[in-house]
Write a protein that binds this DNA or RNA. Structure first.
Lengths: 234, 234
DNA sequence: CGGGTAATTGACCCGGGTCAACAGCAGTGG
DNA sequence: CCACTGCTGTTGACCCGGGTCAATTACCCG
C-alpha cells in the first residue's frame, strides 16, 4: 500500500545529476527505489567530499523537512529512480502506521552511526583499511536489502567516487585497489564486486559489524519494507 | 518543571572517566548540565577517534535507546554533571510536551549535520583549516547556550584531545596551534580561548555557518531550554 | 572514427607522522 | 620544604604515506 501512496511522485534522474542541492528548502523526503546516489558537500574552492552513499531502500533524511535549508547536496551516481514523499504525506503515514515511524527513526539512527564510522575511517584507518572497510560496509548493506548474489554485488562507483568518499586522490585509490586485488581480497570487473573471502576482507578493514545494527529486533522494520514488492502487515 | 523531573537522576563524574561504554545497552538518555564530554570510538589496536564534543545543553543520543548496544563510548573531558533520563520518562515527556519532542528531533538533526561537517573537515580541510574550524564551531555552539563572554570562551581541550578529534598527532596539533597564535587568529591561555577577530578565523577555517542551523525558526526550542533556570511555557 | 570518461603509470614532492628528549607545572606524600 | 610523579606542552631531526602533475592506455558509445 505504501507503494501506491508514493506512486504519485516517482521520479527518475540520469547519472551524475543532482536531485537536491545545498541551500534549498528540502520540502520532501526521498526514498531510493533503484540505483545509487550520494550525499556530498563541497568547499568554496571546489574541494568535494562525499558523506554517504545511498542504495535502494535508503531514505534521504527523513526529518530534514524540519530544517529550512539543506546543508548538503544529493546527487545520483547511476541512473536513479526514487519516490518523493511530501511533508504532509510523511506525517500522515507516520501517524497512521506507527511501525513506519519506528522504522524511520531506526533508519536515521543507523545512518548517523554509519556517519560516525566514516569519521573513524577518515581519522584512523589508512588507505587500505579505509577502502576495504567501505566495500565491506556496502556489501553488508546491499545484502540486507537482497541486492547481492553469493559473494558478488553491483558496484557502480568509479575510482573517482571512491576518492571523493575517502578523501584520497583517485591516483592513490587506483594504486590501493590494485594491491587489494593482487592480495586476492577483492575482484572488480564490469561494475561488479566479488569478495572471495569476506572474513579476510573484514579483518583487513578492521571491520566491526556492530555499528550497522543489523541484528536489531526490528530488522524487518527496515525501510526496505517500503520497497515495491513488500507488503506492510501493519 | 523539566528540571524537577530530571532531578532524581543527576550524576557527576570526574574528568577522563567514561560515562557509558561501547557495547552496553544505553538504557537512558543523558543531558549534559555542566562540563564537557566527548563521543569516541576506537580500533582494536588502540587508535582512537573523537566523534563529537558535548557541551552543556547537549543531549547524548536521544533515540539511542531504540538500539540494543552502544556503537560508541562517551567520556567526560572535564568534571561533568549530567541528568540521566530513562526511556519511559523520555517517552512520557515527549507525549506530554510536543515542543520537547520537536526540540529533540531538531537537536538530532543538528548533531547529524555537525557529524557531516566533521567528515568534510577530515577529508578536505588541511590541518590549519581543520583546527580553526573546530574552534569556530565550538565558539558558536557555546555562544548559543550563553557560555561565552565577549570574544572569549572556556576551552578545556588539551592538544591531545584536539589530536583525537582531528586525526592528527598531538605534535602536529602543537605546531599548528602555535602558527594560529602567531597569526593572531587565536589566543589560548589557562583553558580560555580568545578569538580577537571571529570573521578572520572563520575565513581561515572556510567556515559556513549554515550547517549549525542556528537561524532556525525554533531556535528557542534548543534543548538548552532543558537547562536549569529556564522555564517551559508549553 | 572521434570524443569523452575511467583506469593506469611514472617521477617527484610535501604535509604531517614518528621518535625522542626536555621544560613547565600541579599535585602529593614524606 | 623538597623530591617525585604524571600530565601537558614544546622542539628538533628524520621519514613516509599519500598528493601532484602529466602522459598514456583502455573503453565505451554514438
Amino acid at each position: 500500500m505504501l507503494g501506491r501512496i508514493g506512486k504519485g511522485a516517482i521520479r527518475e534522474v540520469s547519472p551524475r545529476r543532482d536531485i537536491i542541492h545545498e541551500g534549498v528548502d528540502p520540502g520532501a523526503v526521498r526514498l531510493i527505489l533503484e540505483g545509487w546516489a550520494c550525499r556530498y558537500k563541497s568547499l568554496p574552492d571546489g574541494r568535494r567530499q562525499t558523506l554517504a552513499f545511498f542504495i535502494p531502500g535508503d531514505l534521504c533524511d527523513a526529518h530534514v523537512y524540519l530544517l529550512r535549508k539543506m546543508d548538503h547536496s544529493i546527487g545520483a551516481i547511476t541512473h536513479l529512480r526514487y519516490a518523493e514523499i511530501g511533508r504532509e504525506q510523511m506525517d500522515a503515514l507516520a501517524a497512521r502506521y506507527p511501525r513506519i515511524s519506528q522504522a524511520i527513526s531506526w533508519n536515521e539512527l543507523v545512518t548517523a552511526s554509519i556517519q560516525r564510522e566514516w569519521i573513524l575511517s577518515m581519522g584512523q584507518r589508512n588507505a587500505h583499511e579505509h577502502l576495504a572497510h567501505l566495500m565491506v560496509e556496502l556489501f553488508h548493506r546491499l545484502r540486507a536489502v537482497g541486492l547481492t548474489r553469493g559473494d558478488t554485488c553491483p558496484f557502480p562507483l568509479t575510482q573517482n567516487d571512491l576518492a571523493d568518499a575517502t578523501g584520497m586522490t583517485c591516483v592513490h585509490v587506483n594504486r590501493v585497489m590494485q594491491e587489494l586485488r593482487s592480495d586476492g581480497l577483492i575482484e572488480l570487473d564490469h561494475r561488479e564486486l566479488r569478495i572471495p573471502d569476506l572474513r579476510r576482507l573484514e579483518k583487513a578493514a578492521l571491520f566491526n559489524p556492530g555499528y550497522l545494527h543489523l541484528d536489531h529486533e526490528g530488522a524487518e522494520l527496515e525501510t526496505s519494507c517500503l520497497l515495491p514488492g513488500k507488503q506492510l502487515t501493519h
